[in-house]
Amino acid sequence: MTKWKKQIAVFLTLVLLLASGHAGAFSGQVIQRGAEGEDVIELQSRLQYTGYYRNQIDGVFGWSTYWALRNFQESFGLPVDGLAGESTKRKLEQVSQYDEQHVKNQMHKGKAFTYYGGTKTSAQSVNTPAGFSQNDIQLMANAVYGEARGEPYEGQVAVAAVILNRIASESFPNTASGVIFEPGAFTAVADGQIWLTPNPQAKEAVLDAINGWDPTGEALYYFNPDTATSGWIWSRPQIKQIGQHIFCE
């Protein structure tokens, strides 16, 4: 009778151990810098639990997560590559706990959070390209949507690229808002169409342009040859036509 009880106890312990080892366990992916999502939340929580990560748990694998991971790898004698691969994840699981529900609840409420060592969580963050805030991107998406919503996707990236080329140019203002609201620069600003709600595609086009895509070959101007009122614009060296717009230097 006691023997039977013992066996059950051993079995239960084993089950518990296995279960705890795999509670909210990582998926099979190798996690690298720049990644977003569930695995990153778990990675940050576990690194915070062990004291290596001191920032907010926000679900984006940024630089501070990267340094925390490298320090963790170094301390535990793992290869220091800043990638959360199989052996690193197993090691983290061994030395830390992760209460998925708790972390997510706190993130959802945006509450200060003491369980994992006194640091805060924040609502899920998003990656933005260096030098631009989400609001800059939104403003540019508005301009792109107002100016080129009927154009092919490439034409929308092109309009965003022209805005960026102007920001970089000596002859134009140095900010996104300065370039967009320059009187007479964009028809969508003049007739108020810039305040239409942009679709996700316009925003994607802006992100592509900020990330370096320039289908215009460094154009500073564009015009619709059917409706252009200014004769001067025809004198600019033309680079390429995309959809209805001719892009020029």
Binding site: N55, D58, G62, W63, S125, T128, A130, Q134
Partner: peptide
């Protein structure tokens, strides 16, 4: 360069 960290989602 100051390396940019992710921006909190306001939406």
């Amino acid at each position: 360069e100051k390396l940019q960290e992710a921006e909190a989602g306001y939406a």
